[in-house]
């Protein structure tokens, strides 16, 4: 990573302004659209999706439930009702295909904040004050399930920044400077001033869980034109999980150049910023 140079300008020069932000812009639109589906009800009285990311009902027919929440509930020895079981199955099936961490980059509202924190820390030139192990999130995930079993309650929902922020926005409790504001503020400051990409790429058990369910996903980013790579490192600069890129770039000609790591969020930012157009989305793998 080169702190003296920001990723982006090279891609703009090579491919033009539109192509260089294509996936970023799509992603932000998707994040806004998902928020709007939930927010149109409380804001203007047009109810499309009720509830929160923990569990919701769209147009009275489509139930969706966070499978991690369901897992904790089961660990706490509660067998949820059919609606939640169906809702969690739909979510599981969808993310198994498109990649679980697509939730992170395309849906989760916390991503907006942690991306902002990252953007700010780069511009402010803050040093990384704390090096964290990327495996921590899987330990935290295990702890979450274990503690749900031990305490007989859905423990993660007591602090989950994802649903806290979502709930805070939709039920108007964020402005009241309640617990949601504290937790979300802490995550933002942590990412800004303490650990680079600290929350989403090292700690969040929700992201870890969604990564696991996308283990055998069909939709992946691949590096079909890796032969053109001139090692500018721009992709590493923007990727929230840079370690996932190396195997794809290093794949032998004719070998599998799809990014297979469960940590890849399918955000597509590497596709955007690569001046050589090395990357592309692929279905299945190989290219």
């Amino acid at each position: 990573m080169r702190p003296d140079r920001f990723a982006g300008p090279a891609a703009v020069a090579a491919k033009g302004r539109v192509a260089a932000v294509r996936w970023l812009a799509s992603r932000r639109s998707a994040q806004a659209a998902f928020l709007a589906l939930f927010a149109s009800g409380p804001l203007v009285g047009i109810w499309i999706t009720k509830g929160t990311l923990a569990s919701s009902m769209t147009l009275g027919v489509l139930p969706l439930t966070d499978p991690l929440l369901l897992l904790q509930s089961l660990a706490a020895l509660h067998v949820p009702e059919r609606s939640a079981l169906i809702g969690a199955s739909i979510v599981l099936a969808a993310y198994a295909v498109v990649g679980g961490r697509m939730f992170c980059s395309w849906v989760c509202p916390v991503n907006l904040l942690t991306d902002l924190a990252h953007w700010l820390r780069l511009r402010a030139g803050f040093k990384n004050a704390l090096r964290l192990n990327r495996q921590l999130r899987y330990w935290l995930l295990a702890a979450t399930i274990a503690m749900s079993a031990a305490t007989g309650s859905v423990v993660w929902e007591a602090v989950n920044p994802v649903t806290m922020l979502h709930r805070g926005l939709l039920f108007g409790t964020l402005a009241a400077a309640g617990l949601a504001a504290v937790v979300v503020g802490a995550v933002f400051l942590f990412d800004l001033a303490v650990a680079e990409r600290g929350w989403c790429s090292h700690l969040c058990p929700v992201g870890a869980f969604y990564g696991l369910i996308g283990r055998f996903r069909l939709l992946k980013v691949a590096a079909p034109r890796r032969a053109d790579c001139d090692h500018c490192q721009d992709c590493f600069q923007v990727c929230p999980e840079p370690h996932v890129i190396v195997p794809a770039l290093k794949a032998p000609a004719g070998g599998d150049a799809a990014i297979r790591s469960i940590d890849c969020t399918n955000c597509g930012r590497c596709i955007d910023v690569c001046p050589q157009s090395v990357f592309a989305f692929s279905l299945g793998g190989k290219p």
Binding site: G51, L69, S73, S153, L170
Partner: peptide, 26 residues
């Protein structure tokens, strides 16, 4: 405590209460 093994804190009950009786705890 069984309530906390089950509740998703999703607020769907709050939304469907016609009298705005229910709210989510702060």
């Amino acid at each position: 405590d069984r309530f906390f093994a089950a509740c998703a804190r999703c607020g769907l009950c709050v939304r469907d209460c016609p009298y705005d009786t229910l709210r989510l705890a702060e």
